[in-house]
Write a protein that binds this DNA or RNA. Structure first.
Lengths: 157, 157, 157, 157
DNA sequence: TTTT
DNA sequence: TTTT
Protein backbone atom coordinates (compact mmCIF):
# COMPACT_ATOMS: atom_id res chain seq x y z
CA UNK A 1 0.00 0.00 0.00
CA UNK A 2 2.55 2.53 -0.97
CA UNK A 3 2.33 5.24 -3.50
CA UNK A 4 -0.31 6.47 -5.86
CA UNK A 5 -1.07 4.89 -9.21
CA UNK A 6 -3.96 6.71 -10.77
CA UNK A 7 -5.18 7.04 -14.31
CA UNK A 8 -7.92 9.31 -15.59
CA UNK A 9 -9.22 8.75 -19.08
CA UNK A 10 -11.95 10.24 -21.19
CA UNK A 11 -12.35 8.83 -24.65
CA UNK A 12 -14.36 6.66 -27.02
CA UNK A 13 -14.71 2.92 -27.11
CA UNK A 14 -13.14 1.32 -30.13
CA UNK A 15 -15.37 -1.71 -29.90
CA UNK A 16 -18.17 -3.19 -27.87
CA UNK A 17 -17.16 -4.39 -24.40
CA UNK A 18 -16.10 -8.02 -24.22
CA UNK A 19 -17.60 -9.93 -21.36
CA UNK A 20 -15.86 -12.81 -19.69
CA UNK A 21 -17.55 -14.86 -17.00
CA UNK A 22 -15.14 -16.48 -14.62
CA UNK A 23 -15.39 -20.00 -13.21
CA UNK A 24 -15.45 -18.33 -9.82
CA UNK A 25 -18.68 -16.63 -10.74
CA UNK A 26 -17.08 -13.26 -11.23
CA UNK A 27 -17.32 -11.17 -14.33
CA UNK A 28 -14.72 -9.16 -16.21
CA UNK A 29 -15.39 -6.71 -18.97
CA UNK A 30 -12.70 -5.34 -21.24
CA UNK A 31 -12.68 -2.73 -23.94
CA UNK A 32 -10.36 -0.13 -25.38
CA UNK A 33 -10.81 3.57 -25.40
CA UNK A 34 -8.96 6.03 -27.54
CA UNK A 35 -7.47 9.35 -26.64
CA UNK A 36 -5.58 11.43 -29.11
CA UNK A 37 -3.35 14.40 -29.36
CA UNK A 38 -2.68 16.66 -32.30
CA UNK A 39 0.51 18.44 -33.04
CA UNK A 40 2.62 19.61 -35.92
CA UNK A 41 5.67 17.51 -36.59
CA UNK A 42 9.04 18.98 -37.40
CA UNK A 43 8.02 19.30 -41.05
CA UNK A 44 5.11 21.40 -39.96
CA UNK A 45 2.60 18.73 -40.88
CA UNK A 46 -0.43 18.15 -38.76
CA UNK A 47 -0.32 14.82 -37.01
CA UNK A 48 -2.94 13.11 -34.92
CA UNK A 49 -1.62 10.48 -32.60
CA UNK A 50 -4.06 8.08 -31.01
CA UNK A 51 -3.36 6.20 -27.83
CA UNK A 52 -5.43 3.10 -27.12
CA UNK A 53 -6.07 2.19 -23.52
CA UNK A 54 -7.10 -1.31 -22.61
CA UNK A 55 -9.67 -1.07 -19.82
CA UNK A 56 -10.58 -3.90 -17.51
CA UNK A 57 -13.58 -3.70 -15.21
CA UNK A 58 -14.68 -6.16 -12.56
CA UNK A 59 -17.89 -7.04 -10.83
CA UNK A 60 -20.22 -4.09 -10.43
CA UNK A 61 -18.49 -1.90 -12.95
CA UNK A 62 -18.35 -4.84 -15.33
CA UNK A 63 -22.10 -5.15 -15.16
CA UNK A 64 -22.62 -1.49 -15.88
CA UNK A 65 -20.20 -1.48 -18.78
CA UNK A 66 -21.86 -4.57 -20.21
CA UNK A 67 -25.27 -2.98 -20.03
CA UNK A 68 -24.62 0.59 -21.01
CA UNK A 69 -21.48 0.88 -23.09
CA UNK A 70 -20.99 0.10 -26.73
CA UNK A 71 -18.60 0.87 -29.54
CA UNK A 72 -18.28 4.57 -30.19
CA UNK A 73 -19.53 5.68 -26.80
CA UNK A 74 -17.57 8.16 -24.80
CA UNK A 75 -16.67 7.17 -21.27
CA UNK A 76 -14.74 8.52 -18.32
CA UNK A 77 -12.68 5.87 -16.60
CA UNK A 78 -10.64 6.15 -13.50
CA UNK A 79 -8.31 3.37 -12.49
CA UNK A 80 -4.76 2.25 -12.09
CA UNK A 81 -2.06 0.97 -14.38
CA UNK A 82 -1.39 -2.71 -14.24
CA UNK A 83 1.24 -4.55 -16.21
CA UNK A 84 0.70 -8.25 -16.76
CA UNK A 85 3.53 -10.48 -17.84
CA UNK A 86 2.93 -13.51 -19.99
CA UNK A 87 4.63 -15.71 -22.50
CA UNK A 88 3.28 -15.99 -26.02
CA UNK A 89 3.08 -19.22 -27.99
CA UNK A 90 6.56 -18.62 -29.38
CA UNK A 91 7.83 -18.52 -25.85
CA UNK A 92 8.49 -14.83 -25.99
CA UNK A 93 8.02 -12.84 -22.81
CA UNK A 94 5.51 -10.10 -23.23
CA UNK A 95 3.89 -7.42 -21.14
CA UNK A 96 0.37 -6.19 -21.34
CA UNK A 97 -0.53 -2.90 -19.81
CA UNK A 98 -4.11 -2.49 -18.70
CA UNK A 99 -6.11 0.03 -16.82
CA UNK A 100 -7.95 -1.63 -14.00
CA UNK A 101 -10.92 0.68 -13.65
CA UNK A 102 -12.41 1.66 -10.33
CA UNK A 103 -14.81 4.36 -11.45
CA UNK A 104 -16.84 4.74 -14.59
CA UNK A 105 -18.83 7.60 -15.97
CA UNK A 106 -20.93 7.37 -19.09
CA UNK A 107 -20.81 10.60 -21.00
CA UNK A 108 -22.98 10.08 -23.97
CA UNK A 109 -23.56 7.84 -26.95
CA UNK A 110 -22.01 8.02 -30.35
CA UNK A 111 -24.22 10.73 -31.74
CA UNK A 112 -25.22 8.75 -34.77
CA UNK A 113 -26.19 5.44 -33.29
CA UNK A 114 -28.14 6.75 -30.37
CA UNK A 115 -30.55 8.48 -32.73
CA UNK A 116 -31.20 11.71 -30.98
CA UNK A 117 -31.25 10.35 -27.48
CA UNK A 118 -29.73 12.70 -24.97
CA UNK A 119 -26.50 11.45 -23.62
CA UNK A 120 -26.53 9.73 -20.29
CA UNK A 121 -24.30 10.58 -17.39
CA UNK A 122 -23.75 8.49 -14.32
CA UNK A 123 -20.74 7.67 -12.26
CA UNK A 124 -20.22 4.31 -10.72
CA UNK A 125 -17.45 3.47 -8.39
CA UNK A 126 -15.67 0.38 -7.41
CA UNK A 127 -13.51 0.97 -4.41
CA UNK A 128 -10.32 2.71 -3.86
CA UNK A 129 -9.66 6.30 -4.68
CA UNK A 130 -6.02 5.68 -5.09
CA UNK A 131 -6.68 2.33 -6.56
CA UNK A 132 -5.39 0.46 -3.58
CA UNK A 133 -7.56 -2.31 -2.28
CA UNK A 134 -7.73 -2.08 1.47
CA UNK A 135 -6.44 -5.28 2.93
CA UNK A 136 -9.83 -6.69 3.62
CA UNK A 137 -12.07 -4.54 1.57
CA UNK A 138 -15.75 -4.46 2.48
CA UNK A 139 -16.31 -3.31 -1.06
CA UNK A 140 -15.04 -6.36 -2.82
CA UNK A 141 -12.31 -5.90 -5.32
CA UNK A 142 -11.44 -8.87 -7.43
CA UNK A 143 -8.47 -10.57 -5.91
CA UNK A 144 -5.58 -10.28 -8.32
CA UNK A 145 -5.19 -13.99 -7.78
CA UNK A 146 -8.17 -14.44 -10.05
CA UNK A 147 -6.50 -12.41 -12.68
CA UNK A 148 -5.15 -15.48 -14.37
CA UNK A 149 -1.63 -15.25 -15.57
CA UNK A 150 -1.27 -11.72 -14.49
CA UNK A 151 0.74 -11.26 -11.37
CA UNK A 152 4.45 -10.97 -10.88
CA UNK A 153 6.42 -7.82 -11.00
CA UNK A 154 10.02 -6.96 -11.01
CA UNK A 155 12.62 -4.41 -11.51
CA UNK A 156 13.22 -2.90 -14.87
CA UNK A 157 16.92 -2.57 -14.50
CA UNK B 1 5.70 26.30 -6.10
CA UNK B 2 5.12 23.66 -3.57
CA UNK B 3 2.56 20.98 -3.53
CA UNK B 4 -0.18 19.84 -5.81
CA UNK B 5 -3.58 21.47 -6.05
CA UNK B 6 -5.56 19.72 -8.71
CA UNK B 7 -9.25 19.44 -9.40
CA UNK B 8 -10.96 17.24 -11.96
CA UNK B 9 -14.59 17.88 -12.72
CA UNK B 10 -17.09 16.45 -15.12
CA UNK B 11 -20.56 17.92 -15.00
CA UNK B 12 -23.15 20.13 -16.61
CA UNK B 13 -23.26 23.89 -16.89
CA UNK B 14 -26.00 25.49 -14.87
CA UNK B 15 -26.04 28.57 -17.05
CA UNK B 16 -24.42 30.06 -20.09
CA UNK B 17 -20.83 31.22 -19.60
CA UNK B 18 -20.46 34.82 -18.51
CA UNK B 19 -17.83 36.74 -20.39
CA UNK B 20 -15.87 39.57 -18.87
CA UNK B 21 -13.43 41.62 -20.86
CA UNK B 22 -10.71 43.15 -18.78
CA UNK B 23 -9.30 46.64 -19.17
CA UNK B 24 -5.97 44.91 -19.74
CA UNK B 25 -7.37 43.31 -22.84
CA UNK B 26 -7.67 39.90 -21.29
CA UNK B 27 -10.81 37.88 -21.09
CA UNK B 28 -12.31 35.85 -18.28
CA UNK B 29 -15.17 33.44 -18.59
CA UNK B 30 -17.04 32.05 -15.62
CA UNK B 31 -19.75 29.47 -15.25
CA UNK B 32 -20.86 26.85 -12.78
CA UNK B 33 -21.01 23.15 -13.29
CA UNK B 34 -22.89 20.67 -11.18
CA UNK B 35 -21.81 17.33 -9.89
CA UNK B 36 -24.00 15.23 -7.69
CA UNK B 37 -23.93 12.22 -5.50
CA UNK B 38 -26.76 9.97 -4.45
CA UNK B 39 -27.00 8.14 -1.22
CA UNK B 40 -29.52 6.91 1.25
CA UNK B 41 -29.77 8.96 4.42
CA UNK B 42 -30.12 7.44 7.85
CA UNK B 43 -33.86 7.16 7.35
CA UNK B 44 -33.21 5.10 4.27
CA UNK B 45 -34.47 7.82 1.99
CA UNK B 46 -32.83 8.45 -1.30
CA UNK B 47 -31.07 11.78 -1.40
CA UNK B 48 -29.37 13.56 -4.25
CA UNK B 49 -26.88 16.15 -3.25
CA UNK B 50 -25.63 18.58 -5.84
CA UNK B 51 -22.37 20.42 -5.61
CA UNK B 52 -21.92 23.55 -7.70
CA UNK B 53 -18.44 24.43 -8.85
CA UNK B 54 -17.63 27.95 -9.95
CA UNK B 55 -15.26 27.71 -12.90
CA UNK B 56 -13.06 30.53 -14.09
CA UNK B 57 -11.23 30.36 -17.39
CA UNK B 58 -8.74 32.81 -18.82
CA UNK B 59 -7.44 33.72 -22.22
CA UNK B 60 -7.46 30.82 -24.66
CA UNK B 61 -9.73 28.63 -22.61
CA UNK B 62 -12.01 31.59 -22.07
CA UNK B 63 -12.40 31.96 -25.81
CA UNK B 64 -13.23 28.33 -26.27
CA UNK B 65 -15.75 28.30 -23.46
CA UNK B 66 -17.35 31.43 -24.82
CA UNK B 67 -17.71 29.91 -28.26
CA UNK B 68 -18.62 26.33 -27.53
CA UNK B 69 -20.23 26.01 -24.13
CA UNK B 70 -23.74 26.82 -23.09
CA UNK B 71 -26.19 26.03 -20.33
CA UNK B 72 -26.84 22.34 -19.99
CA UNK B 73 -23.68 21.20 -21.75
CA UNK B 74 -21.44 18.67 -20.13
CA UNK B 75 -17.81 19.60 -19.75
CA UNK B 76 -14.65 18.18 -18.29
CA UNK B 77 -12.62 20.77 -16.46
CA UNK B 78 -9.24 20.42 -14.88
CA UNK B 79 -7.88 23.14 -12.68
CA UNK B 80 -6.95 24.21 -9.23
CA UNK B 81 -8.79 25.47 -6.20
CA UNK B 82 -8.52 29.12 -5.48
CA UNK B 83 -10.03 30.94 -2.56
CA UNK B 84 -10.60 34.64 -2.93
CA UNK B 85 -11.19 36.82 0.08
CA UNK B 86 -13.35 39.87 -0.13
CA UNK B 87 -15.53 42.10 1.98
CA UNK B 88 -19.19 42.46 1.18
CA UNK B 89 -21.09 45.72 1.33
CA UNK B 90 -21.99 45.08 4.96
CA UNK B 91 -18.29 44.88 5.71
CA UNK B 92 -18.41 41.16 6.31
CA UNK B 93 -15.39 39.14 5.32
CA UNK B 94 -16.23 36.45 2.83
CA UNK B 95 -14.51 33.74 0.89
CA UNK B 96 -15.25 32.66 -2.63
CA UNK B 97 -13.90 29.39 -3.82
CA UNK B 98 -13.33 29.01 -7.53
CA UNK B 99 -11.79 26.51 -9.82
CA UNK B 100 -9.25 28.16 -12.03
CA UNK B 101 -9.35 25.90 -15.05
CA UNK B 102 -6.31 24.91 -17.05
CA UNK B 103 -7.80 22.25 -19.30
CA UNK B 104 -11.21 21.94 -20.84
CA UNK B 105 -12.91 19.14 -22.66
CA UNK B 106 -16.29 19.45 -24.27
CA UNK B 107 -18.20 16.24 -23.95
CA UNK B 108 -21.45 16.84 -25.66
CA UNK B 109 -24.41 19.12 -25.79
CA UNK B 110 -27.53 19.00 -23.75
CA UNK B 111 -29.39 16.53 -25.90
CA UNK B 112 -32.37 18.76 -26.34
CA UNK B 113 -30.86 22.05 -27.34
CA UNK B 114 -28.30 20.75 -29.74
CA UNK B 115 -31.03 19.32 -31.95
CA UNK B 116 -29.59 16.05 -32.96
CA UNK B 117 -26.05 17.18 -33.37
CA UNK B 118 -23.53 14.61 -32.28
CA UNK B 119 -21.65 15.60 -29.22
CA UNK B 120 -18.32 17.20 -29.69
CA UNK B 121 -15.15 16.23 -27.94
CA UNK B 122 -12.00 18.26 -27.84
CA UNK B 123 -9.51 19.00 -25.14
CA UNK B 124 -7.88 22.33 -24.80
CA UNK B 125 -5.16 23.04 -22.40
CA UNK B 126 -3.86 26.05 -20.72
CA UNK B 127 -0.57 25.25 -19.17
CA UNK B 128 0.50 23.50 -16.12
CA UNK B 129 -0.11 19.95 -15.14
CA UNK B 130 0.07 20.92 -11.55
CA UNK B 131 -2.19 23.79 -12.15
CA UNK B 132 0.21 26.69 -11.97
CA UNK B 133 -0.65 29.18 -14.61
CA UNK B 134 2.01 31.46 -15.98
CA UNK B 135 0.21 34.29 -17.63
CA UNK B 136 1.40 33.78 -21.10
CA UNK B 137 2.82 30.34 -21.28
CA UNK B 138 4.81 29.43 -24.37
CA UNK B 139 3.33 25.96 -23.96
CA UNK B 140 6.05 23.68 -25.10
CA UNK B 141 6.12 19.99 -25.65
CA UNK B 142 8.67 17.94 -27.48
CA UNK B 143 7.38 16.64 -30.77
CA UNK B 144 6.77 12.89 -30.51
CA UNK B 145 8.92 12.53 -33.59
CA UNK B 146 11.95 12.99 -31.38
CA UNK B 147 10.82 10.29 -29.06
CA UNK B 148 13.23 7.64 -30.31
CA UNK B 149 12.35 4.10 -29.31
CA UNK B 150 13.43 2.52 -26.11
CA UNK B 151 12.03 0.14 -23.57
CA UNK B 152 10.13 -3.02 -24.15
CA UNK B 153 6.80 -4.78 -23.66
CA UNK B 154 3.58 -5.39 -25.49
CA UNK B 155 0.05 -6.66 -25.71
CA UNK B 156 -1.52 -10.04 -26.30
CA UNK B 157 -4.34 -9.21 -28.68
CA UNK C 1 -24.48 9.79 -9.13
CA UNK C 2 -23.65 12.07 -11.96
CA UNK C 3 -20.42 13.66 -12.84
CA UNK C 4 -16.94 13.63 -11.41
CA UNK C 5 -15.82 15.71 -8.47
CA UNK C 6 -12.24 14.88 -7.70
CA UNK C 7 -9.52 16.71 -5.87
CA UNK C 8 -5.87 15.75 -5.61
CA UNK C 9 -3.72 17.53 -3.09
CA UNK C 10 -0.17 17.22 -1.94
CA UNK C 11 0.94 19.60 0.74
CA UNK C 12 1.83 20.12 4.37
CA UNK C 13 -0.40 20.17 7.40
CA UNK C 14 -0.76 23.58 9.01
CA UNK C 15 -1.66 22.06 12.35
CA UNK C 16 -2.18 18.77 14.09
CA UNK C 17 -5.31 16.91 13.08
CA UNK C 18 -8.37 17.68 15.17
CA UNK C 19 -10.32 14.65 16.24
CA UNK C 20 -14.03 14.71 16.83
CA UNK C 21 -15.88 11.69 18.13
CA UNK C 22 -19.50 11.58 17.12
CA UNK C 23 -22.40 10.53 19.33
CA UNK C 24 -23.04 7.89 16.70
CA UNK C 25 -19.69 6.35 17.48
CA UNK C 26 -18.07 7.59 14.31
CA UNK C 27 -14.96 9.65 14.14
CA UNK C 28 -14.05 12.67 12.04
CA UNK C 29 -10.64 14.16 11.69
CA UNK C 30 -10.00 17.56 10.17
CA UNK C 31 -6.87 19.45 9.31
CA UNK C 32 -5.66 21.92 6.73
CA UNK C 33 -2.96 21.45 4.20
CA UNK C 34 -1.22 24.15 2.25
CA UNK C 35 -0.31 24.30 -1.38
CA UNK C 36 1.31 27.30 -2.92
CA UNK C 37 2.19 28.80 -6.22
CA UNK C 38 4.81 31.33 -7.07
CA UNK C 39 4.59 33.86 -9.77
CA UNK C 40 5.72 37.35 -10.57
CA UNK C 41 3.02 39.94 -10.29
CA UNK C 42 2.52 42.70 -12.81
CA UNK C 43 5.18 44.76 -11.09
CA UNK C 44 7.61 41.95 -11.63
CA UNK C 45 7.71 41.12 -7.94
CA UNK C 46 7.89 37.56 -6.82
CA UNK C 47 4.75 36.49 -5.04
CA UNK C 48 3.99 33.29 -3.22
CA UNK C 49 0.34 32.57 -2.86
CA UNK C 50 -0.72 29.90 -0.42
CA UNK C 51 -3.99 28.06 -0.64
CA UNK C 52 -5.28 26.32 2.46
CA UNK C 53 -7.43 23.26 2.00
CA UNK C 54 -9.65 22.06 4.80
CA UNK C 55 -9.56 18.28 4.81
CA UNK C 56 -12.12 16.09 6.47
CA UNK C 57 -11.60 12.38 6.95
CA UNK C 58 -14.00 9.81 8.30
CA UNK C 59 -13.77 6.42 9.91
CA UNK C 60 -10.77 4.44 8.75
CA UNK C 61 -8.96 7.36 7.23
CA UNK C 62 -9.72 9.37 10.32
CA UNK C 63 -7.98 6.78 12.44
CA UNK C 64 -4.93 6.78 10.24
CA UNK C 65 -4.71 10.55 10.17
CA UNK C 66 -5.10 10.68 13.93
CA UNK C 67 -2.31 8.20 14.46
CA UNK C 68 0.19 9.19 11.83
CA UNK C 69 -0.21 12.81 10.82
CA UNK C 70 0.92 15.89 12.63
CA UNK C 71 1.60 19.53 11.94
CA UNK C 72 4.24 20.00 9.27
CA UNK C 73 3.86 16.57 7.71
CA UNK C 74 3.39 16.27 4.02
CA UNK C 75 0.40 14.30 2.85
CA UNK C 76 -1.28 13.32 -0.37
CA UNK C 77 -5.04 13.54 -0.15
CA UNK C 78 -7.59 12.57 -2.71
CA UNK C 79 -11.19 13.49 -2.22
CA UNK C 80 -14.05 15.58 -3.39
CA UNK C 81 -15.18 19.14 -2.90
CA UNK C 82 -18.02 19.68 -0.54
CA UNK C 83 -19.65 22.97 0.27
CA UNK C 84 -21.52 23.22 3.54
CA UNK C 85 -23.97 25.99 4.14
CA UNK C 86 -24.54 27.32 7.61
CA UNK C 87 -25.62 30.41 9.44
CA UNK C 88 -23.27 32.15 11.81
CA UNK C 89 -24.29 33.62 15.14
CA UNK C 90 -25.04 36.95 13.48
CA UNK C 91 -27.50 35.15 11.27
CA UNK C 92 -25.31 35.53 8.22
CA UNK C 93 -25.36 32.75 5.67
CA UNK C 94 -21.95 31.29 5.10
CA UNK C 95 -20.35 28.59 3.05
CA UNK C 96 -17.55 26.34 4.08
CA UNK C 97 -15.70 24.43 1.44
CA UNK C 98 -14.07 21.21 2.52
CA UNK C 99 -12.32 18.35 0.92
CA UNK C 100 -13.89 15.10 1.96
CA UNK C 101 -10.95 12.76 1.62
CA UNK C 102 -11.24 9.23 0.30
CA UNK C 103 -7.58 8.34 -0.02
CA UNK C 104 -4.61 9.33 2.03
CA UNK C 105 -0.92 8.91 1.50
CA UNK C 106 1.69 9.85 4.03
CA UNK C 107 4.75 11.15 2.32
CA UNK C 108 7.18 11.85 5.05
CA UNK C 109 7.58 13.59 8.32
CA UNK C 110 8.49 17.15 8.87
CA UNK C 111 12.23 16.73 8.73
CA UNK C 112 12.75 18.37 12.03
CA UNK C 113 10.43 16.49 14.31
CA UNK C 114 11.02 13.07 12.94
CA UNK C 115 14.66 13.31 13.78
CA UNK C 116 16.30 11.36 11.06
CA UNK C 117 13.55 8.86 10.55
CA UNK C 118 13.00 8.03 6.94
CA UNK C 119 9.72 9.28 5.74
CA UNK C 120 6.89 6.82 5.59
CA UNK C 121 4.69 6.21 2.62
CA UNK C 122 1.42 4.36 2.65
CA UNK C 123 -1.82 4.86 0.87
CA UNK C 124 -5.11 4.21 2.51
CA UNK C 125 -8.38 4.35 0.76
CA UNK C 126 -11.87 4.97 1.81
CA UNK C 127 -14.34 4.15 -0.88
CA UNK C 128 -15.17 5.65 -4.16
CA UNK C 129 -12.75 6.57 -6.86
CA UNK C 130 -14.92 9.34 -8.11
CA UNK C 131 -16.03 10.19 -4.68
CA UNK C 132 -19.51 8.87 -5.06
CA UNK C 133 -20.91 6.86 -2.25
CA UNK C 134 -22.47 3.72 -3.61
CA UNK C 135 -26.07 3.61 -2.60
CA UNK C 136 -25.57 1.20 0.21
CA UNK C 137 -21.93 1.43 0.89
CA UNK C 138 -20.34 -1.34 2.91
CA UNK C 139 -17.76 1.24 3.83
CA UNK C 140 -20.06 3.58 5.62
CA UNK C 141 -20.09 7.09 4.39
CA UNK C 142 -21.34 9.59 6.89
CA UNK C 143 -24.73 10.94 5.92
CA UNK C 144 -24.45 14.67 5.37
CA UNK C 145 -27.14 15.07 7.97
CA UNK C 146 -24.61 14.11 10.59
CA UNK C 147 -22.25 16.69 9.37
CA UNK C 148 -24.14 19.49 10.93
CA UNK C 149 -22.42 22.21 12.82
CA UNK C 150 -19.07 21.42 11.41
CA UNK C 151 -18.64 24.49 9.35
CA UNK C 152 -16.63 27.62 9.68
CA UNK C 153 -13.81 28.26 7.41
CA UNK C 154 -10.54 29.75 8.06
CA UNK C 155 -6.94 29.17 8.45
CA UNK C 156 -5.31 26.91 10.92
CA UNK C 157 -3.19 29.46 12.68
CA UNK D 1 -6.93 16.83 -29.35
CA UNK D 2 -9.67 14.66 -28.09
CA UNK D 3 -10.13 13.05 -24.78
CA UNK D 4 -8.21 13.01 -21.56
CA UNK D 5 -5.16 10.86 -20.90
CA UNK D 6 -3.87 11.62 -17.46
CA UNK D 7 -1.69 9.73 -15.05
CA UNK D 8 -0.88 10.64 -11.48
CA UNK D 9 1.90 8.79 -9.74
CA UNK D 10 3.55 9.02 -6.39
CA UNK D 11 6.34 6.58 -5.71
CA UNK D 12 10.04 5.99 -5.37
CA UNK D 13 12.70 5.92 -8.03
CA UNK D 14 14.18 2.50 -8.65
CA UNK D 15 17.39 3.96 -9.99
CA UNK D 16 19.09 7.23 -10.72
CA UNK D 17 17.66 9.14 -13.67
CA UNK D 18 19.25 8.38 -17.00
CA UNK D 19 20.08 11.42 -19.05
CA UNK D 20 20.09 11.41 -22.83
CA UNK D 21 21.18 14.42 -24.82
CA UNK D 22 19.65 14.60 -28.24
CA UNK D 23 21.42 15.63 -31.43
CA UNK D 24 18.79 18.35 -31.65
CA UNK D 25 20.12 19.81 -28.44
CA UNK D 26 17.19 18.62 -26.38
CA UNK D 27 17.44 16.53 -23.28
CA UNK D 28 15.43 13.55 -22.11
CA UNK D 29 15.55 12.00 -18.69
CA UNK D 30 14.08 8.62 -17.89
CA UNK D 31 13.66 6.68 -14.69
CA UNK D 32 11.24 4.25 -13.15
CA UNK D 33 9.14 4.73 -10.10
CA UNK D 34 7.43 2.04 -8.14
CA UNK D 35 3.97 1.93 -6.69
CA UNK D 36 2.63 -1.05 -4.89
CA UNK D 37 -0.55 -2.49 -3.56
CA UNK D 38 -1.05 -5.00 -0.81
CA UNK D 39 -3.81 -7.49 -0.60
CA UNK D 40 -4.55 -10.92 0.67
CA UNK D 41 -4.73 -13.57 -2.01
CA UNK D 42 -7.36 -16.29 -2.03
CA UNK D 43 -5.25 -18.35 0.33
CA UNK D 44 -5.31 -15.49 2.75
CA UNK D 45 -1.66 -14.76 2.26
CA UNK D 46 -0.39 -11.24 2.26
CA UNK D 47 0.87 -10.21 -1.15
CA UNK D 48 2.59 -7.04 -2.20
CA UNK D 49 2.44 -6.30 -5.87
CA UNK D 50 4.73 -3.66 -7.28
CA UNK D 51 4.07 -1.79 -10.47
CA UNK D 52 6.99 -0.08 -12.18
CA UNK D 53 6.27 3.02 -14.21
CA UNK D 54 8.73 4.20 -16.81
CA UNK D 55 8.84 7.98 -16.68
CA UNK D 56 10.14 10.19 -19.44
CA UNK D 57 10.77 13.87 -18.92
CA UNK D 58 11.81 16.48 -21.46
CA UNK D 59 13.57 19.78 -21.37
CA UNK D 60 12.83 21.77 -18.25
CA UNK D 61 11.53 18.85 -16.27
CA UNK D 62 14.44 16.78 -17.52
CA UNK D 63 16.83 19.31 -16.07
CA UNK D 64 15.11 19.30 -12.74
CA UNK D 65 15.00 15.53 -12.55
CA UNK D 66 18.65 15.34 -13.49
CA UNK D 67 19.62 17.78 -10.77
CA UNK D 68 17.37 16.82 -7.94
CA UNK D 69 16.26 13.21 -8.23
CA UNK D 70 18.15 10.08 -7.43
CA UNK D 71 17.50 6.45 -6.68
CA UNK D 72 15.25 5.99 -3.69
CA UNK D 73 13.70 9.43 -3.80
CA UNK D 74 9.98 9.82 -3.72
CA UNK D 75 8.44 11.86 -6.49
CA UNK D 76 5.02 12.91 -7.67
CA UNK D 77 4.69 12.75 -11.43
CA UNK D 78 1.80 13.80 -13.56
CA UNK D 79 1.73 12.92 -17.21
CA UNK D 80 0.12 10.90 -19.91
CA UNK D 81 0.37 7.34 -21.12
CA UNK D 82 2.27 6.82 -24.31
CA UNK D 83 2.80 3.55 -26.08
CA UNK D 84 5.74 3.30 -28.44
CA UNK D 85 5.92 0.57 -31.01
CA UNK D 86 9.22 -0.84 -32.11
CA UNK D 87 10.80 -3.96 -33.49
CA UNK D 88 13.44 -5.80 -31.52
CA UNK D 89 16.56 -7.33 -33.02
CA UNK D 90 14.71 -10.61 -33.56
CA UNK D 91 12.21 -8.72 -35.65
CA UNK D 92 9.51 -9.06 -33.05
CA UNK D 93 7.05 -6.21 -32.71
CA UNK D 94 7.04 -4.79 -29.25
CA UNK D 95 5.34 -2.05 -27.35
CA UNK D 96 6.77 0.10 -24.65
CA UNK D 97 4.49 2.01 -22.37
CA UNK D 98 5.85 5.17 -20.86
CA UNK D 99 4.57 8.04 -18.85
CA UNK D 100 5.43 11.29 -20.52
CA UNK D 101 5.57 13.59 -17.52
CA UNK D 102 4.30 17.13 -17.56
CA UNK D 103 4.53 17.97 -13.89
CA UNK D 104 6.98 16.90 -11.26
CA UNK D 105 6.99 17.29 -7.53
CA UNK D 106 9.86 16.26 -5.33
CA UNK D 107 8.59 14.95 -2.06
CA UNK D 108 11.62 14.17 -0.05
CA UNK D 109 14.85 12.33 -0.15
CA UNK D 110 15.49 8.73 0.57
CA UNK D 111 15.74 9.02 4.32
CA UNK D 112 19.05 7.29 4.43
CA UNK D 113 21.05 9.22 1.92
CA UNK D 114 19.84 12.65 2.80
CA UNK D 115 21.03 12.21 6.34
CA UNK D 116 18.63 14.22 8.30
CA UNK D 117 17.88 16.81 5.71
CA UNK D 118 14.28 17.81 5.57
CA UNK D 119 12.64 16.66 2.43
CA UNK D 120 12.17 19.17 -0.29
CA UNK D 121 8.94 19.90 -2.07
CA UNK D 122 8.54 21.80 -5.27
CA UNK D 123 6.28 21.38 -8.23
CA UNK D 124 7.41 22.04 -11.73
CA UNK D 125 5.14 21.95 -14.67
CA UNK D 126 5.54 21.41 -18.32
CA UNK D 127 2.50 22.35 -20.28
CA UNK D 128 -0.85 20.86 -20.66
CA UNK D 129 -3.11 19.84 -17.89
CA UNK D 130 -4.57 17.15 -20.02
CA UNK D 131 -1.26 16.42 -21.56
CA UNK D 132 -2.07 17.52 -25.06
CA UNK D 133 0.66 19.12 -27.05
CA UNK D 134 -0.51 22.31 -28.64
CA UNK D 135 -0.33 22.29 -32.35
CA UNK D 136 3.10 23.72 -32.94
CA UNK D 137 5.02 23.39 -29.77
CA UNK D 138 8.37 25.04 -29.31
CA UNK D 139 10.31 23.33 -26.59
CA UNK D 140 10.95 25.43 -23.52
CA UNK D 141 9.82 25.04 -20.00
CA UNK D 142 8.98 28.06 -17.97
CA UNK D 143 11.36 27.98 -15.03
CA UNK D 144 9.32 28.82 -11.98
CA UNK D 145 11.25 32.00 -11.58
CA UNK D 146 10.15 33.04 -15.00
CA UNK D 147 6.56 32.30 -14.27
CA UNK D 148 5.85 35.79 -15.29
CA UNK D 149 2.94 37.86 -14.27
CA UNK D 150 0.14 35.58 -13.48
CA UNK D 151 -3.14 36.56 -12.34
CA UNK D 152 -4.95 39.34 -10.97
CA UNK D 153 -8.36 37.88 -10.62
CA UNK D 154 -11.03 38.07 -8.08
CA UNK D 155 -14.45 39.53 -8.03
CA UNK D 156 -16.68 37.49 -5.86
CA UNK D 157 -19.29 37.45 -8.58
C1' DT E 1 -10.54 -0.43 -33.09
C1' DT E 2 -13.17 5.10 -31.66
C1' DT E 3 -14.11 9.91 -33.00
C1' DT E 4 -13.73 14.76 -35.41
C1' DT F 1 -28.49 27.20 -11.80
C1' DT F 2 -27.55 21.69 -14.70
C1' DT F 3 -29.07 16.90 -15.51
C1' DT F 4 -31.46 12.09 -14.88
Amino acid sequence: MAGVNKVILLGRLGSDPEVRNLPSGGKVVTFSIATSENYNNKNGEKVEQTEWHRIELWEGLANIAEQYLKKGDMAYVEGRIRTEKWTDKEGIERNTVKIRGNALQLVGGRGAGNDGATESSSTYSGNSGGGYAPKSAPIPMPPPAEMAGSGSDDLPF
